[in-house]
Computed example of a mutant assay.
Amino acid sequence: MQARILIVEDLADTRRLIRWALEEAGHRLHEAASGALALQIAQALRPDLMLVDVVMPGEIGGLELCAQVRQDPTLADTKLIVLSASAAPHERQRALAAGANAFLAKPFSPVRLAELIDEVLAAD
């Protein structure tokens, strides 16, 4: 399934890795390096799915971004996958409480990321 995916990650190298992992699937990929920029892009783009890093510079971190997306009626159907450098159970719980559909700890396998995206997009 081709989807509009917004990659929200402040590290350019990580964005490149994600892009590389997803290009073969034919998704339309967009990028944002901050939560504030991601929110603006999401409101204009209406992505099918957002990949959201937890720790980002600026006023809007990843979990706050997820909460704001969930509060916006025009983005309510957007799927959210939170990416975190912490695999601690409380991080997963915080992400899900903020509205994430799924959680993936870094470092992650590009294959696993692609599989998770397919799973989340297929779920309703």
Rank of each mutant, 00 (worst) to 15 (best):
L49F: 10
A44F: 00
L45Q: 14
A95D: 09
D13K: 05
A21H: 09
A36N: 04
L45S: 09
G35C: 07
P110E: 12
I81W: 07
A87R: 11
E31H: 12
M1Q: 11
R16Y: 09
L63A: 04
S84I: 09
V120W: 07
P107D: 07
E115N: 11
W20Y: 11
A102W: 05
V55E: 13
L104C: 03
D77K: 15
R15Y: 05
A38H: 03
D72Y: 02
R92G: 11
M1R: 12
R70D: 06
H90M: 14
T14W: 01
V111L: 13
H27S: 09
A3E: 10
V69Y: 03
I117L: 12
R19H: 12
C66E: 01
N101V: 02
V69D: 03
P73Q: 07
E59I: 03
K79S: 14
L75V: 13
E91F: 13
L39T: 03
I117Y: 06
P107W: 04
H30S: 13
V8M: 06
Q68Y: 02
I60R: 04
T74N: 09
Q43D: 04
L63G: 03
I81Q: 09
L80G: 08
G58F: 09
E64C: 00
Q71Y: 00
S86W: 03
V69C: 02
V54D: 05
I117T: 10
A32V: 01
A97N: 08
G58P: 04
L45A: 05
D77R: 15
A85L: 08
F103K: 00
A122R: 15
